[in-house]
Design a protein around this nucleic acid. Structure first.
Length: 343
DNA sequence: TAGCATGATTGAAT
DNA sequence: ATTCAATCATGCTA
C-alpha cells in the first residue's frame, strides 16, 4: 500500500493522470488511507504540470510507464472508477431489444426485404395478388406482380447495401475507439470492462441510424404496396360464362339471394374467380337489383326461362333414358328453346 | 367522348 | 364476419 501511495504522488506529478481519473477524492483517501494533506499535494502537483517543460513532462511520463508498480496502481484506480463513476453511468448495461426495432425487423422479414433470399415476401405478395386480383388468375395480374417483385428486389438491394455500409462504418468506428482506448490505457487507467461499455454505447448510438434505415425501408415498401394495391383496382369484367352462372344462381334464388359459403365456393370454382369476388358480385347485384327492379325485369325473365329450359332439358334427357320421349314433352322443350332465343 | 355498366373498396350497421 | 350503401375507377358502347 505504501508503494502505491508514493507512486500516486509521483504519477500525479508526472501528469499521467487526469483529474477525472483521480476522480473521487474520498474514495482515493479511503483506499490509500492517507490524510487530506497528501491529496492536496497530489492535486497541486497535477496543476503544476502545465508549468513544466514538455521534455521534463515526457521524461517523467516515461519514468512512470516503466515503473514496476504501474499495473498494480492502474488496477486499483480502475477498481475505484468501477465503483464510482462507471457504476452510475452503466446501470442500464444490457437493455432489452428495442420493441420498435423488433417491429421493423418483423415487417422487413415478412415483406421479404430482410431475411433469407426470396423468402416469404414474394410469396406473401403472390398470395395477396391471388386473393384480390380480378378476373382470370395469372393472365392480367402477371405483369403487375413481376413489376412489384422487381421493385421489391430493388428496395431489398438498396437496404442490404446500406446495411452493409452501416455495419462497416460501425465496426470501423468501434475499432478506432477501441484502439484509442487501448492506447490511452497505457497512460490512464482504463479497464477492459470500460472499453466494453464504450463499445456498447457506440453500438447503441449506431443502432439509431440502423433504425432510421429500417424505418425508411419500411416506408418504401408500404408505398410500393399501396401503389400495387391501387394497380389491382384495375378491374376486368368477368367473362360471359361466369356472369351467366352467377345470374342463373341469383335469379333462381331471387327470394333469398344469399349463397352459403359452400355455394359461393362452388360458384367461384365454376366461374374461375375468388370467393370474395363472388361475394362482391352478389353484394353489387342485390343492391342494384333492389334499386331498380324494373330495369332487371327483362333479365330476370330471361334467366327464369333459361332455368326452365335447363330443367326441361334435364327431365327430357332423363325420360329419354328411361322410356321413349312423349310427343308432348318434346313439343314443350322446343317451344321453350324458341322462347329463349327470342329473349 | 359521354354516359352507362360493372367490379372493387370503404365505412357503418348488424 | 357479413351485408348494405355509397363511391371509385375502369370497361364498354353508341
Amino acid at each position: 500500500m505504501d508503494d502505491q501511495t508514493r507512486m500516486l504522488a509521483g504519477l500525479a506529478g508526472l501528469g499521467g493522470l487526469s483529474q477525472g481519473d483521480v476522480g473521487d477524492q474520498d474514495s482515493v483517501r479511503k483506499q490509500l488511507g492517507q490524510p487530506q494533506q497528501d491529496i492536496g499535494d497530489i492535486l497541486q502537483q497535477i496543476m503544476a504540470i502545465t508549468d513544466e517543460s514538455l521534455d521534463e513532462a515526457q521524461a517523467r511520463k516515461h519514468a512512470l510507464n516503466c515503473h514496476r508498480m504501474k499495473p498494480a496502481l492502474f488496477s486499483v484506480l480502475c477498481e475505484i472508477k468501477e465503483k464510482t463513476v462507471l457504476s452510475i453511468r452503466g446501470v442500464q448495461d444490457e437493455d432489452p431489444p428495442d420493441p420498435q426495432i423488433m417491429r421493423l425487423d418483423n415487417m422487413l422479414l415478412a415483406e421479404g426485404v430482410s431475411g433469407p433470399e426470396k423468402g416469404g415476401g414474394s410469396a406473401a405478395a403472390a398470395a395477396a395478388a391471388a386473393a384480390a386480383a380480378g378476373g382470370s388468375p395469372g393472365s392480367d395480374g402477371g405483369i403487375e406482380h413481376s413489376d412489384y417483385r422487381a421493385k421489391l428486389a430493388q428496395i431489398r438491394q438498396i437496404y442490404h447495401s446500406e446495411l452493409e455500409k452501416y455495419e462497416q462504418a460501425c465496426s470501423e468506428f468501434t475499432n478506432h475507439v477501441m484502439n484509442l482506448l487501448r492506447e490511452q490505457s497505457r497512460t490512464r487507467p482504463i479497464s477492459p470492462k470500460e472499453i466494453e461499455r464504450m463499445v456498447a454505447i457506440i453500438h447503441r448510438k449506431f443502432s439509431s441510424i440502423q433504425m432510421q434505415l429500417k424505418q425508411s425501408t419500411c416506408e418504401a415498401v408500404m408505398i410500393l404496396r399501396s401503389r400495387f394495391l391501387d394497380a389491382r383496382r384495375k378491374r376486368r369484367n368477368f367473362n360471359k360464362q361466369a356472369t351467366e352462372v352467377l345470374n342463373e344462381y341469383f335469379y333462381s334464388h331471387l327470394s333469398n339471394p344469399y349463397p352459403s359459403e359452400e355455394a359461393k365456393e362452388e360458384l367461384a370454382k365454376k366461374c374461375a374467380i375468388t370467393v370474395s369476388q363472388v361475394s362482391n358480385w352478389f353484394g353489387n347485384k342485390r343492391i342494384r337489383y333492389k334499386k331498380n327492379i324494373g330495369k332487371f325485369q327483362e333479365e330476370a325473365n330471361l334467366y327464369a326461362v333459361k332455368t326452365a329450359v335447363d330443367a326441361a332439358s334435364v327431365s327430357a334427357q332423363a325420360s329419354q333414358a328411361n322410356s321413349p320421349a312423349t310427343p308432348n314433352s318434346v313439343y314443350y322443350f322446343k317451344r321453350l328453346q324458341t322462347l329463349l332465343q327470342l329473349c
